[in-house]
Design a protein around this nucleic acid. Structure first.
Length: 762
DNA sequence: GTTCTAGAAC
DNA sequence: GTTCTAGAAC
C-alpha cells in the first residue's frame, strides 16, 4: 500500500550521502506539494514524497502510514519529503524521530501570508486534500492560529523559513541543487525577523484584535549568515576540482556535455550549485562584429569578473562545434591562464543546457534586440520560445527597450519551462554593438566606439549576473550590500598579474553598465552620446516628450510626472507653492502629504531625474539637499518635539526630477491610502539620504531597491513590525503603536528626532 | 502621482 | 451588502 503513495525519482537509492528527511510545514495553500514536485523534478538525488492526503489510497491517510512509508524509503537510501501541514510541535514530534546519525532532519517552513494560502486553497480544484471552496479560509485560519514555528531544539539539523515567494524560490533552488553527496549547513535560515512579535501580529489580525504587544526576541533562533548557496558552492568548489577542469588547467571545450552527465550520475559533481552564467558571444553573429576583436574583449571582461568574484562560473556557449569565436576564445583563454573552473566554453543549445548537456546554469544571457521582443530568429527567438510567455511578460514589466551596451536582468517565474526544466532562474538580455549595415544603428566599422560598447555590454551582463548571485546568496532583509561589495571581494589565491582591488578602486567600477535587476525602467541610457538613430524610434518620441535631448535619460515620464521638473526649472512661476528657493534646490510641501509633515527638497539640475541618475559628481548636491531637508525637519521638531523624521529618496520615483522626501513618521494622513504608498516609505524602496550619500561616496552609485518586490510587500508596522491585512487596519494600528523603532532605523542617524529624544547628545 | 471603478474579499 | 484592492486612464 505504501508503495503507491511514494513518488521515487530514481531507480535505486545508490545513496552514498546521508538521506535527508525534509519536513514541510505550512497551511493548506502554502505550496508544500508544489515545492516537493519542483525539487523532485529537478533533483538528481532520489526523493520520495510522503503525503498524508494521498497515502490512504482514496481515504484520508494516517500519520502512522506516513511514518511507515518514510521509514521504508529511508531504508532504501532515499531522501523523504513529509508533505503535511505539521503546524504544531506535537504533530511534528514523531516525524522528527526519523532523524538519526544516519538521517538528517530538516524543516522547510512555508510561512506565507494567510491571505495567499487562503486564496490558493479556494482556487485549487484538484487538490488531493479536497479542501475547496469557502471552507478553506476557516480551515487555514484555524490552523494558523495553532501554528508553532519549529525550533532547532526539537531535533532539526536545519530549518529554512520562507516568508515570501522569493524565499520559496531560494529554498527550491537549494534543495533542487542538492545531489547525493551534498550536505547543507546546519542552523536556521531565512527567519527575517526572529521576533515573536510578528507571528503574534499575524495571529492578531486573524483573530481580529489589535493590541500592542511586547514580546522579546526569541532566543531559539540563532542567526546565520544567509548565504546558503554561496557557502555551499564554496564547499563544493574547494572539495573537488570540478567536472570540467582539464589537466592543462585551461579553458576547455565541453562537447555535448556527455562527460558532465556521467560525472553527475556517479555523484562526483556537486558543482551545479555554483552560480553559473551561460552566454553567447555578443554581436559576432548577426551584428558582424570582428571575431578577433570580440574574443579579446570577451577574455578581458571574463578575466576581470573571474578575478573579482569567487564561486561563480561563466560559460561561453555556441551551437556549433565549428564555431570560430569559440575556438578563438578557447585559445586566448589558454594563453591567459584563465581558471577553467570559472570559465569555459560549451557547445550546445543555450535553451537546453541542462536537459541536453547536463550543464546547470542559473542564468543565461540572451543577445536581445533593442525592442526586447521575441522573434527575429536565432537565439533570441529560441530563448523567448523556450521560456514561454512568462519571459515576455516579465521583460515587459521591466523595460520597453534596451540600448547597445546595456543588460537587463529578468527573473523567470517558476512556471516557465526554462526554469522548471533547465533550472534557469534568470535571463539577462544584453544588446551589443551592431556592425551590420542591414541592421539598425550600424556603427559603420567604427571599432573604437564598437569596442567600447561591446565592453559595456559584457560589463553590464556580468554585473547583472553578479547582482543575481548577490540577491540569491543573501536574503537578509535590509541587507544593503550591493554588487560592489560582491565585486570587491578580493581573491588572493588566484594567480595572475591582474589588477586586484586597488584601495581606490572606484574608477574601475564606477561608471558601469546598468544591471536593472529589479528596477522597472523603460529606455535606459543615452550616456556618452551614442550615435543612435532614433528619430522615429520610441526613444525619439520620448525625448521630445521629456523636453530633453542627449545624455542621461533614464525613464519615460508621463505628462503627469512632469510637475516637479517644471517647478525645478522655473521656480519663479510657482512661488506660491514653494517654501524655499536657492540656486541648487527648491523646497515645497508635498501636494499629497503622507504624514503630518511631508515636504520635498527638489534638485534644480537638469537631467537629474532619479537616484539612478546620481553619481559621484552629484555628491555636493546630495549633501546640500540633505542639509536643507535636515534644517526643515529640525524646524518642525522645534514646533513639535514628538515628531520623528526620515529623510530619503524613493528607489524609483513616480515623479521626474530628483527629490528628497522629508517625512514625519506618524503617517497620519488621509492621502496615505494604499500599499504602494506605505511601502514606498517603509520598505527598502525608501533609501535614507545618509545611506545614499555613503554609497555614492564609497561606490559612486546608490543601491536601488526593486520596485515591484518592495512595493507589493505585506503591510508591516514600521515600529513593531507587526503585519496587517489591509490599509485601514494598518492605519488604525499605527495611530496607536508606541513601540520603539527597529534597531536598523535607530542607527546611522536615519531617524531625525528632537534633541531631548535622541538622548545621546553631549 | 491621483482618481475612478470593477470585482474580489469579507 | 460593504469594504478593500488593483488596474486603467489621466
Amino acid at each position: 500500500m505504501a508503495e503507491m503513495d511514494c513518488e521515487p525519482t530514481s531507480k535505486e537509492g545508490e545513496g552514498q550521502g546521508k538521506p535527508i528527511v525534509v519536513l514541510l510545514m505550512g497551511a493548506p495553500g502554502s505550496g508544500k506539494s508544489t515545492f516537493c514536485e519542483h525539487v523532485i523534478r529537478s533533483s538528481t538525488r532520489p526523493w520520495v514524497r510522503v503525503c498524508q492526503d494521498t497515502i490512504g489510497n482514496g481515504k484520508a491517510g494516517t500519520k502512522s502510514q506516513c511514518l511507515k512509508s518514510a521509514t521504508s524509503a529511508l531504508e532504501d537510501g532515499k531522501s523523504v519529503f513529509i508533505d503535511r501541514c505539521n503546524l504544531d510541535r506535537e504533530q511534528r514530534a514523531e516525524f522528527v524521530k526519523l532523524g538519526s546519525p544516519q538521517v538528517e532532519m530538516h524543516a522547510v517552513v512555508l510561512d506565507l501570508p494567510a491571505q495567499l494560502c487562503i486564496s490558493r486553497s479556494v482556487k485549487r480544484t484538484g487538490h488531493e486534500g479536497n479542501l475547496q471552496g469557502g471552507k478553506a479560509a476557516a480551515v487555514v485560519n484555524r490552523m494558523l492560529q495553532k501554528k508553532e514555528l519549529p525550533k532547532l531544539s526539537e531535533g532539526f539539523h536545519r530549518i529554512t523559513f520562507c516568508q515570501n515567494d522569493s524565499d520559496v524560490q531560494t529554498a527550491l533552488n537549494t534543495y533542487s541543487a542538492l545531489s547525493h553527496l551534498d550536505t547543507l549547513p546546519p542552523g536556521c535560515f531565512g527567519q527575517k525577523n526572529p521576533d515573536a512579535k510578528i507571528q503574534l501580529g499575524i495571529m492578531k489580525f486573524l483573530k481580529k484584535v489589535e493590541v500592542p504587544v511586547n514580546v522579546g526576541p526569541d532566543a531559539n533562533f540563532p542567526k546565520h549568515p544567509l548565504s546558503t548557496q554561496i557557502t555551499k558552492a564554496k564547499d563544493s568548489c574547494c572539495k573537488q576540482p570540478e567536472d570540467i577542469s582539464s589537466s592543462s588547467g585551461n579553458a576547455k571545450e565541453i562537447k555535448g556535455g556527455e562527460d558532465i552527465v556521467v560525472h553527475s550520475v556517479d555523484g562526483t559533481v556537486s558543482s551545479k550549485d555554483i552560480p553559473t552564467l551561460a552566454f553567447p558571444s555578443i554581436s559576432t553573429a548577426d551584428f558582424q562584429f570582428n571575431h578577433e576583436k570580440a574574443a579579446d574583449i570577451i577574455l578581458e571582461k571574463v578575466e576581470e569578473f573571474v578575478n573579482k568574484v569567487e564561486n561563480a562560473r561563466l560559460v561561453l556557449v555556441d551551437l556549433s562545434h565549428g564555431s570560430k569565436i569559440l575556438s578563438l576564445v578557447r585559445a586566448k583563454a589558454a594563453q591567459r591562464n584563465i581558471d577553467s573552473n570559472k570559465f569555459f566554453t560549451f557547445v550546445g543549445d543555450i535553451t537546453r543546457l541542462y536537459s541536453k548537456g547536463g550543464l546547470r546554469c542559473n542564468a543565461i544571457a540572451n543577445a536581445a534586440n533593442w525592442r526586447l521582443k521575441p522573434g527575429g530568429g536565432g537565439a533570441n527567438a529560441a530563448i523567448f520560445s523556450a521560456a514561454g510567455p512568462e519571459l515576455e511578460v516579465e521583460t515587459k514589466k521591466r523595460a520597453g527597450s534596451l540600448i547597445p551596451g546595456k543588460a537587463l536582468v529578468v527573473p523567470l517565474p517558476s512556471t516557465s519551462p526554462l526554469f522548471s526544466r533547465e533550472g534557469v532562474t534568470h535571463v539577462i538580455h544584453v544588446l551589443g554593438p551592431n556592425m551590420n549595415r542591414q541592421r539598425p544603428n550600424c556603427l559603420n566599422n567604427d571599432y573604437v566606439k564598437g569596442s567600447k560598447v561591446l565592453r559595456e555590454a559584457y560589463t553590464s551582463l556580468f554585473e547583472g549576473f553578479a547582482s543575481i548571485m548577490n540577491t540569491q546568496g543573501n536574503l537578509l532583509e535590509g541587507s544593503s550590500e550591493n554588487l560592489r561589495s560582491e565585486l570587491s571581494v578580493s581573491q588572493d589565491h588566484f594567480k595572475g598579474n591582474h589588477i586586484k582591488n586597488v584601495p581606490n578602486h572606484d574608477q574601475k567600477i564606477k561608471r558601469v553598465g546598468v544591471y536593472e535587476s529589479e528596477t522597472s525602467k523603460k529606455c535606459k541610457g543615452f550616456q556618452d552620446e551614442h550615435e543612435f538613430d532614433c528619430t522615429e524610434s520610441k526613444e525619439g518620441k520620448d525625448k521630445l516628450n521629456n523636453e530633453k535631448i542627449g545624455r542621461n535619460m533614464t525613464k519615460t515620464w508621463g505628462s503627469w510626472a512632469q510637475s516637479l521638473y517644471h517647478i525645478a526649472m522655473h521656480p519663479e512661476k510657482h512661488k506660491d507653492n514653494l517654501i524655499e528657493i536657492s540656486d541648487d534646490v527648491v523646497v515645497l510641501n508635498d501636494l499629497y502629504p503622507k504624514a503630518q509633515r511631508h515636504l520635498l527638497v527638489l534638485a534644480r539640475s537638469e537631467g537629474l531625474d532619479c537616484l539612478a541618475d546620481v553619481g559621484g559628481e552629484h555628491l555636493q548636491l546630495l549633501r546640500t539637499m540633505h542639509a536643507v531637508g535636515l534644517k526643515w525637519a529640525e524646524k518642525f521638531l522645534c514646533e513639535d518635539e514628538l515628531l520623528v523624521f526620515r529623510i530619503g529618496y524613493h528607489s524609483a520615483p513616480s515623479m521626474r526630477q530628483l527629490h528628497l522626501h522629508v517625512i514625519s513618521q506618524d503617517f497620519n494622513s488621509k492621502h496615505l491610502k494604499n500599499k504602494k504608498h506605505w511601502n514606498s516609505f517603509n520598505s527598502a524602496f525608501f533609501r535614507d539620504s545618509v545611506d545614499v550619500i555613503e554609497e555614492i561616496t564609497n561606490h559612486g552609485r546608490a543601491t536601488i531597491k526593486g520596485e515591484d518586490s518592495q512595493l507589493s510587500m505585506e503591510l508591516r508596522c514600521h515600529r513593531c513590525r507587526s503585519a496587517h491585512p489591509n490599509m485601514p487596519r494598518l492605519k488604525s494600528h499605527i495611530s496607536n503603536c508606541q513601540a520603539s523603532f527597529p534597531p536598523s532605523l535607530l542607527q546611522n542617524d536615519r531617524l531625525v528626532l528632537a534633541p531631548s529624544k535622541s538622548g545621546s547628545e553631549p
